[in-house]
Amino acid sequence: MPHWNYSTVSEFILFGFSAFPRQMLPALFLLYLLMYLFTLLGNLLIMAAVWSERRLHTPMYLFLCALSISEILFTVVITPRMLADLLSTHQSITFTACANQLFFSFTFGYTHSFLLMVMGYDRYVAICHPLHYHVLMNLQGCARLVAWSWAGGSLIGMTVTLIIFHLTFCDSNVIHHFLCHVFSLLKLACGERTALVTIVVILVCVTPLIGCLVLIVLSYVFIVAAILRIPSTEGRQKTFSTCVSHLTVVIVHYGFASIIYLKSRGPHSLYTDTLMSTTYTVFTPFLSPIIFSLRNKELKNAINRSFHRNFRQQSS
C-alpha cells in the first residue's frame, strides 16, 4: 500500500463490542469463532471436491472455486479482528493497518460480487445458448473473467482507500465499529470536502453493486424466458435446479449488503449498528458454502465421496 500524509490523529480506537454487556461477549465469541471455522472448512471442502472430481472441472465450478477463495480471504481479513475485539475492549489500530484492512475487505467483498455476476452470465450462456457454451465459456475465457473480477475488486478497494485516507481526521479517533468501516471513518473526517467525499464514496460503493445486480437480474429474465419454452415440466425443473444455489446466494448477498448500504442514516444504537454489520461480514460467508453444498446435488455427492475417500485413507 502507498504511503499517505496522515493528519494529527496517529491511530484509531475500535470501540466495537465495548458497549455490549460483558457476560454476553463469551457467547458471541464462541458463536462467531464456530462460524469462522465452519466458513473456512466449508469453502475448503468445496475446493477439494472440485479439484478431486474430474466431472466438476467445468466453468461453473471453476467460478465456484474462485468464489470460495474470495470468501476465505474476506473472512480471514475480517473475522480475526472481530474476535480480538470481543476478547478486549478499545482495540487500537494504526493508520496503515486500518488502510490495509479497508483495502482488502473492499477488494475481496467486491470481487465476490463480480464473481456472482460472472456466474449468472455462465448460467445464461448454458441455458440460453447451449450450443455455443463450450466456445463462449472456454478455459481461457473463464480465466479472463475471474481475472477481471479480481482486478475490478482491487480497483474499487484501492479507490475507496485512497479517497478515505486523503481526508483529514481530527478530534475523536474512536471508530464505533469492530473494524475500519468506511462510513465510520467518514464520520471522523473533518474539513470542507467531507460532505462531497461522502457522496463520492457512496457512489463508488453502491454503483458496482447495483450494476452487478442489474446484470444478474437481466440474465435471469432471459433464463426464465428460456425455461418457460421447455415443453416438459420435468425439463423445466431440472434446468432451473442448476440455478437455484446461485440465485439463493445472490439473494442472501444482496439482502445483507442492503442492510449495510441502504439502512436509514438516522440514529441507531451501538448494538444495532454492530449486529447489522455482522450479518454481512459473518453470516454471508457462513451461509454461502451451506447453500451451494445443500442445493447442488452434484457438488454435495462429490464432497461426500471426497470426505469418505480421505477418511478411508486415514483409517488404513
Score class of each variant (00 low, 15 high):
4 W>R: 05
11 E>H: 13
12 F>I: 13
12 F>D: 02
20 F>P: 03
22 R>C: 08
30 L>Y: 07
33 L>M: 05
34 L>E: 11
34 L>C: 14
35 M>R: 04
36 Y>R: 04
37 L>A: 10
38 F>H: 14
40 L>P: 00
49 A>D: 10
51 W>K: 11
52 S>V: 00
55 R>L: 11
56 L>R: 06
58 T>V: 03
59 P>E: 10
62 L>M: 08
65 C>R: 13
66 A>W: 00
67 L>I: 14
68 S>G: 08
68 S>D: 04
69 I>A: 07
70 S>P: 02
73 L>T: 00
73 L>A: 10
76 V>L: 14
77 V>D: 10
77 V>G: 01
78 I>G: 02
84 A>N: 05
86 L>P: 01
88 S>P: 00
93 I>A: 01
94 T>L: 04
103 F>C: 01
106 F>Y: 06
110 Y>E: 03
110 Y>C: 03
117 M>A: 11
122 D>Y: 10
124 Y>Q: 12
129 H>M: 14
153 G>Q: 07
155 L>E: 01
157 G>M: 08
159 T>D: 04
160 V>I: 10
161 T>P: 01
166 H>M: 03
169 F>S: 05
171 D>T: 08
172 S>W: 14
173 N>A: 13
175 I>G: 00
175 I>K: 09
178 F>D: 08
181 H>G: 10
185 L>H: 05
187 K>A: 12
188 L>G: 05
190 C>F: 09
191 G>F: 05
191 G>H: 06
194 T>Y: 00
195 A>F: 09
198 T>G: 03
203 L>K: 11
204 V>Q: 05
206 V>N: 06
210 I>P: 01
212 C>I: 06
219 S>I: 06
222 F>H: 13
224 V>G: 08
226 A>I: 02
226 A>T: 00
226 A>R: 12
231 P>Q: 06
236 R>S: 03
238 K>R: 14
241 S>N: 12
245 S>R: 04
247 L>Q: 05
247 L>E: 02
252 V>R: 04
257 A>W: 04
257 A>I: 01
267 P>V: 15
273 D>L: 13
274 T>A: 03
275 L>S: 08
275 L>R: 03
276 M>F: 15
282 V>P: 01
286 F>Y: 13
289 P>Y: 12
295 R>T: 08
305 R>V: 02
306 S>C: 14
306 S>Y: 10
316 S>I: 14
